[in-house]
Design a protein around this nucleic acid. Structure first.
Lengths: 355, 355
DNA sequence: CTGTTAGCGCATTCAC
DNA sequence: GTGAATGCGCTAACAG
């Protein structure tokens, strides 16, 4: 167990002072070519890992990070992402980072445009983006690039952009998995109902589209015989849903299972609960409060978690480490797909990476 | 965002010096009654959380922790527990903790006795125990209690002992879950093969017994029709296994799935691979190297992870925080039961709580 | 350009 | 019994 390398050690080995080493480590300039070479030679030899908690102790610089996501609803997906961000800030309590949170209505493209415009104007040191509207997000990313402000995506990546990193689950595999799970637990001849959100003018469906692709590809690949029946659902008018479902199940008498490729599965579980339906299998996404309830009560058979807290946590942690000492960043980061059942949900700790 | 409370703040509020506050916080004595009351009054008002990373910076005291578990085999369960412990030590690099690792042969009760005797003699500040032999472990725990050395169990709890804490998965629920999974994917009339380790003189089976109980209880509760057929397997003579399995499947023609309630499932997967068996479902435990391979290659349908790394990590983290500032400890700690499939294993990060 | 040094929050030691 | 002073690894300001 060898002693940790400190800045002082490096300075000694390179024959310079700690001040010089610090300047080189932080690219602060005012260093002669010869000193730089001496220190960099040493740095290549030894494995220096700065202790970020202690740096923060003496770090005067404040960082401003803007976080922009859809509105935060209690017990919903985006709240978890923000919770993860908060945890990261707690872990790095010594670092002075000021967070500005800008949320928009994910069902209103105008709200998104307005907010993104404001985000583009800030003088933040970095931005964390929860992107749902595609065009708008690409535009924001371009604006940030021009100002050389690093940005990180959570929840989903975005084509045609060059983020510092993104943290997301693999939505395609997620859909693929849902197909595998539901078909493994329903009778082979039965039909599968798929809840389909009907939305207007938004692209947040992007993730849903990927999931649907994965879902369909599984059925095709494995030559699965179950037919898929769409259940349309107008997200903006939840009060209609009861009627829509009743209608659906009256028309479709051969449904063996239902899948929901967005996080709203809980309403199906609630419907099952209200109507005493126990023989239709249900596979849903995300640990929203209603979904967890549905799982615990036995109406949902498998619930897939995408670790939103972890996404937020890692996004902020990555950002801090990058800002402070340019720690190299891995761009593509996929979080786990957690398969949860009634039995395991009680032991599931969304912050198991923390405590 | 209010400023964090520091010792200096407390001192000021109580009208004493930081030295006095520190003495009270650490129960070092040499404090007048009046000072103690003043400080404790303040402490009740404010939420003081010491920054452990910074404490370590100036902490002179060294801690000695003894870790005793079964031998560490590459890619096996106990290696993961030790890996988790190492990660915790890395996270608390500032704390000077010296680890002594004592491993014993989990198939040899005499080896365990000998090692435990040596553990009981040390002057460690704390002990982490991976208990397999019951009697011996109870005896060790008593000896440690006499010497007032705190100890923590990993992998499984132990009756008749008073550990500082234990970190384990819920083995009963684990078995219950295995039953649920296997019966949900095999034909209703088919039989289930259960691999049964034949061992001599060891109680490590304790965890297996709990799992088997959970397994059986599920079948009974749900009134499941599948019959269970035992496959006996002599752990000490793996070369015989091929023959034993061939024999088994020749006698049993109605096997729809196989379950393995210990971590050795990989050998069944290997057997399936060698003999091109694709139509028998397989549910196994633990992310050993062979099991992960079996899962990826499609021979294992569900693999249950018990987060051994996390157990080790939390055990050491808990210990450090307890030793340094008597952080209150939660005694019963159950880790997650992760359900993994071929699709999700690629995203599974055993150290997601770290990076 | 470079070396020296004050201070960050904390535990500990040393005078008083 | 107590407060003041020291040092941990690091950053940043300052004096050369």
């Amino acid at each position: 167990m060898k002693r940790k390398i400190r800045i002082k050690d490096i300075a000694q080995m390179a024959g310079v002072s700690v001040g010089t080493v610090d300047r080189i480590l932080h690219n602060r300039g005012n260093v002669s070519e010869s000193a730089r070479i001496a220190v960099e030679t040493v740095l290549k030899k030894v494995d220096y890992k700065p202790n970020i908690h202690i740096s923060g102790l003496s770090l005067k610089r404040k960082y401003k990070v803007v976080i922009t996501t859809p509105n935060i609803m209690k017990g919903e997906y985006w709240e978890s992402i923000h919770a993860g961000i908060s945890y990261a800030l707690e872990e790095f309590e010594n670092i002075r980072v000021q967070c500005l949170v800008y949320t928009y209505n994910q069902y209103d493209i105008y709200s998104c445009r307005e907010i993104f415009d404001r985000v583009a104007e800030t003088d933040a040191d970095a931005v964390i983006i929860g992107a749902t509207f595609k065009e708008e997000s690409v535009r924001l990313s371009k604006q940030l690039e021009e100002k050389e402000i690093p940005y990180i995506f959570v929840d989903s990546p975005l084509e045609n952009s060059s983020p510092l990193a993104f943290f997301t689950s693999d939505h395609y595999v997620c859909g693929y998995l849902v197909a595998k799970l539901i078909t493994s637990i329903i009778p082979s001849g039965s039909d599968i109902g798929m809840l389909q959100a009907v939305r207007i003018g938004d692209q947040s469906a992007n993730t849903s589209i990927l999931r649907k692709q994965g879902f369909n590809d599984y059925l095709q690949e494995k030559n699965i015989g179950n037919n898929v029946q769409r259940i349309s659902f107008t997200a903006m008018e939840p009060e209609k849903f009861d009627h829509q479902l009743t209608d659906f199940f009256q028309r479709q008498q051969n449904i063996g299972g239902v899948v929901v490729l967005n996080s709203r599965g809980g309403i199906v579980a609630d419907y099952f609960a209200k109507n005493g339906i126990h023989d239709i299998k249900l596979v849903c996404l995300d640990l929203t409060a209603p979904n967890v309830r549905g799982l615990k009560e036995g109406y949902i058979d498998f619930l897939i978690g995408q670790e939103p807290e972890h996404q937020g946590f890692l996004a902020m942690k990555t950002l801090i480490e990058y800002l402070i000492y340019r720690k190299p960043v891995k761009v593509e980061n996929f979080t786990q797909l957690d398969i949860l059942t009634k039995e395991t949900i009680g032991y599931y700790n969304q912050f198991n990476f923390m405590s």
